[in-house]
């Protein structure tokens, strides 16, 4: 069984009077295996963010179903959703979304605190993660005191400290400079090697080229996908670029 199974997902937004219907997702089906690192690419307005919101149980699909580790998302009751997200999903956002009222340490603890974990356990969990992400020295600092790359690493720590079944990343490199981007992608590859399952939505060819598989979405559908296979990142980069060019120039489905 796959870690994540998305089948026939459709999302239609209607305006309040119902006169205007916008089809954000037409028919999306794919699955992600345990330990896979999947990148989803697509232009603005292709439905990436909608898809991510549905995967995060923040939004409900109009049709189709999403199954995470055997649990169908739409079957999770509204009041249990927050706990479900907390226990099963880790989030990394483009804008880091760290709370400026907390130190980096407290920001990382947030999901664990919400889950009611004792301080001792949180601390033992944090130590190896902080060391791995290279932020052990920064834990007592506040978000406004550290660089973007450091903020994003803290956000990654927050995403994985709960040992989630799936890490969802929304344009994680979008607000980083090239140095920060390289570092973050290296970290993502690192945590992928540890056996974590990652789903990343991105614009960036470079970010996508680190994934083990790249899905392309266009007009609300999965249009194409590329497996890394034995390719190096550079080779994959080339392939993705070609695909994007083809998509942009309106080539036929490959």
């Amino acid at each position: 069984m796959s870690r994540l199974d998305v089948s026939g997902v459709k999302k239609i937004y209607t305006t309040r009077l119902g006169s205007n219907r916008v089809e954000a997702l037409r028919n999306v089906s794919f699955s992600v295996e345990q330990g896979e690192y999947v990148a989803i690419m697509g232009e603005s307005g292709s439905g990436k963010t909608t898809l991510l919101n549905i995967l995060a149980a923040l939004d409900e699909p109009t049709a189709g179903r999403v199954v995470l580790d055997g649990q169908e998302l739409s079957k999770v009751k509204e009041k249990d959703r927050a706990a479900f997200r907390r226990d099963n999903l880790g989030f990394v956002f483009q804008e880091f979304n760290l709370l400026d009222t907390f130190t980096l340490e407290d920001n990382i603890y947030l999901p664990l605190v919400l889950a009611g974990k004792p301080y001792k356990e949180m601390k033992t969990r944090l130590q190896p993660i902080a060391a791995q992400l290279g932020i052990s020295e920064l834990l007592k600092k506040y978000p406004y005191e550290v660089s973007g790359g450091q903020k994003q690493r803290a956000a990654v720590a927050r995403a994985i400290i709960t040992n989630p079944k799936l890490v969802l990343a929304d344009e994680p490199t979008g607000a980083l400079d090239s140095k920060g981007t390289d570092e973050l992608l290296r970290l993502f590859s690192g945590i992928h090697k540890e056996g974590r399952t990652i789903l990343m939505v991105t614009h960036s060819v470079k970010a996508a080229s680190h994934a083990s598989r790249v899905l392309f979405i266009k007009d609300g559908e999965v249009f194409h996908q590329i497996y890394r296979g034995d390719n190096t990142s550079e080779q994959l980069y080339q392939k993705i670029s070609d695909t994007l060019t083809m998509l942009a120039t309106g080539g036929e489905r490959g």
Binding site: A82, A83, D87, F93, L99, P111
Partner: peptide, 9 residues
């Protein structure tokens, strides 16, 4: 944001 990180309404 808290809601996304897993805080219920």
């Amino acid at each position: 944001l808290m809601q996304k990180v897993g805080m219920s309404r």
